[in-house]
């Protein structure tokens, strides 16, 4: 076996640490590295800056990291599962389903405690994915992935139509769900998000046994069956992992598009076709990208904030187009 080259992973791991550090320093008033260090390791209760770092910036950086990694990995799994490089977690109706539940709950009950929203979102995401999966995979043939994409698009449109109808009827609800619509990693204390983070860690670890099977699946369903992959089980487990990862991401940060689509492409360009190499890379890149996007989001027009979904698009799109162009000229 060709030796596993660790250095690209190490480089990105280092990049992630740097980004994490910057995120703790960044704000309307930047803190120095020393302040950050003190805030993390030796708490002096009176210091307002250190308090800010511990209670606001740290949860925020952790959320961005977890959400970015989840979306990167979940997007990668979806692209392998559907053999479609334009697939993303949103395709399963996960975002739309989560959002619809949040909007419905808000309309029915007024403002919600954070954890109800979180669990509602993840529940809606799971139900949407289950329905899409049920429609697409009921029959055992090769058109499953295509039906998955079509059913996902249809269900997304349906849920979004419901959400919009509810929001038109109940205008006040709009403010309280704007957070989910535009996506945000702010203002979620760790006390609320730690179960979701645990879910993400569990799902990421759960990817381990699937990596080699995904390598075979990437050559097509028929080839995978021929090589002895238990295809229905692998597909089921993969969907479960995607729902856990992307569902938790939606529950934590709302609708952050684009990361799940582009990050797997970057990872494959950098690390090659082997899932054991590029999928961890997708997690690292996603985490780094979202942390940096969040830093930019809250510093560019401080003290106001740009929605993070806007930032991921602003950073991601030119990067992506550049890569496609370079790839094109190399091929031609």
């Amino acid at each position: 076996m060709t030796p596993y080259r660790f250095w690209p992973v190490l480089v990105w791991l280092f990049g992630l640490l740097v980004a994490f550090g910057i995120s703790l320093m960044a704000g309307p008033q930047w803190s120095g590295p020393l302040t950050v260090w003190h805030a993390l390791w030796s708490s002096s209760p009176g210091d307002i800056n250190e308090l800010l770092i511990r209670t606001t910036r740290l949860p925020r950086a952790l959320t961005a990291m977890a959400v970015g990694a989840s979306l990167g990995v979940a997007g990668g799994i979806m692209q392998t599962l559907t053999r479609n490089s334009l697939a993303s977690p949103g395709l399963l109706g996960i975002n739309a389903g989560g959002l619809f539940v949040v909007v419905s709950l808000t309309t029915l009950a007024g403002s919600l405690p954070g954890w109800v929203g979180s669990f509602g979102a993840i529940g809606g995401a799971a139900v949407a994915a289950a329905v899409v999966w049920g429609i697409a995979m009921r029959r055992r043939d090769e058109a499953g992935p295509l039906r998955l994409i079509l059913a996902g698009a249809a269900l997304t449109a349906l849920f979004n139509a419901f959400s919009q109808a509810l929001l038109v009827i109940d205008q006040q609800g709009l403010d309280s769900v704007l957070f989910w619509l535009a996506g945000s990693v702010s203002a979620r204390p760790l006390a609320q998000t730690w179960p979701l983070m645990l879910l993400i860690v569990a799902a990421v670890l759960g990817c381990g046994p699937c990596l080699r099977q995904w390598n075979v699946l990437a050559a097509g369903e028929a080839v995978a069956v021929g090589a002895g992959v238990a295809i229905r089980r692998l597909q089921g487990v993969s969907i479960l992992l995607v729902v856990s990862l992307a569902g938790a991401a939606v529950a934590m940060a709302g609708n952050i598009a684009f990361v799940g689509l582009i990050v797997p492409h970057l990872a494959r360009r950098l690390a090659g076709a082997d899932h054991r190499r590029w999928l961890p890379m997708a997690g690292l890149i996603g985490a780094t990208l979202l942390i940096l996007a969040d830093v930019a989001a809250r510093t560019l027009i401080a003290p106001r904030e740009v929605p993070i979904g806007v930032m991921t698009a602003l950073i991601g799109v030119p990067f992506f187009i550049g890569l496609i162009r370079r790839e094109g000229s190399r091929g031609g």
């Binding site: 490089s85 390598n215 990437a218 050559a219 028929a222 021929g226 494959r268 076709a273």
Partner: peptide
């Protein structure tokens, strides 16, 4: 073992 009709290799492999 099986070689199906028109298999498509994973990108970049």
């Amino acid at each position: 073992s099986l070689l199906p009709q028109h298999p498509v290799a994973p990108e970049g492999i």
